[in-house]
Simulated scan of single mutants.
Amino acid sequence: MKKIVLVLSFLFSTSFFAQEKVYYNFAVNNCGESSAEELISKCLIGSYLLNYDFVTIQGKTVSTDKVKKPIVLIAASTRCAPCWGDIPALNKMVEKYNNKVEFIMFFWDDLDGIKRMQEKLDARIHLIPSTKKFDNKSYTESYGFFHKLDYPTTYLISKDKKFLSIRRGAAYPSKDMNWDKVNEINEKELEEFIKPVL
């Protein structure tokens, strides 16, 4: 009987500790993986979002713990061509899913840069400036949320604040691809990306 109790106690304590949450800020800063793909697959997916009090360029505070919908969190820079290429598809997703998903976009840029892109973005997207600059232009920090995966990077976060998926890059116009094709590719990718939380 003592052995059964001991085994059950061990199993209970093991499962209890196995369920402890790992938060994104710890995962992104302590992952020993060398590539972005490994950082995403081995450390970031499955981690959880802490509360961040993002302040939009209009001065409105968006506290992530008060957001009751899934979150699409986008890291962008106005110096990044794919970020501009993704705008029409992103606006379409906001139009379709704004009542089901919260859209937040934070930037590497300062306020002047963000205002240039704001003119093209759906007004329902919360636009957040960087609060800390780094020598490595792939890195940015906004109100404690640390990003180091280039631009654009889109994070899909469930209602319980778990990171489900991360999308990097986007199509953009070139001599081989016109805007119609770019929009078709980006819209299809974003739709598939968001689908798990709808």
Rank of each mutant, 00 (worst) to 15 (best):
Q58P: 05
K60C: 10
I157T: 03
T153S: 08
V55S: 12
S142E: 05
L149K: 02
E38G: 04
W84M: 10
I104P: 01
V5P: 10
N29F: 09
M93L: 10
V55H: 12
N178P: 07
T131Y: 07
L164Q: 05
M105S: 08
E37F: 14
C83H: 08
R167H: 15
P82C: 12
L50G: 08
I40D: 00
K92Q: 15
A123W: 15
A75L: 07
F145K: 02
E33D: 13
K175V: 14
F26D: 13
E38V: 05
K181I: 11
V5R: 12
V72W: 05
A18F: 15
N29M: 13
L198V: 02
R79F: 14
G32F: 08
K162Y: 06
V7Q: 03
F12K: 05
A18M: 15
P70V: 00
P173Y: 02
Y151N: 04
L90E: 09
K148L: 07
E20S: 15
T64W: 09
H126T: 05
V72P: 00
Q118D: 12
I74V: 14
A123R: 14
A171V: 08
L8S: 10
N99I: 00
F26M: 09
L156G: 02
K96Q: 09
R79V: 07
V101E: 02
K133Y: 11
N98A: 13
W84D: 04
V197T: 03
S35I: 04
L149V: 00
L39T: 04
M1F: 15
G59P: 04
F163S: 02
C31N: 14
W108E: 06
G46T: 03
E119Q: 13
K148E: 09
M117E: 11
D180K: 15
K159Q: 01
K92P: 08
C43K: 10
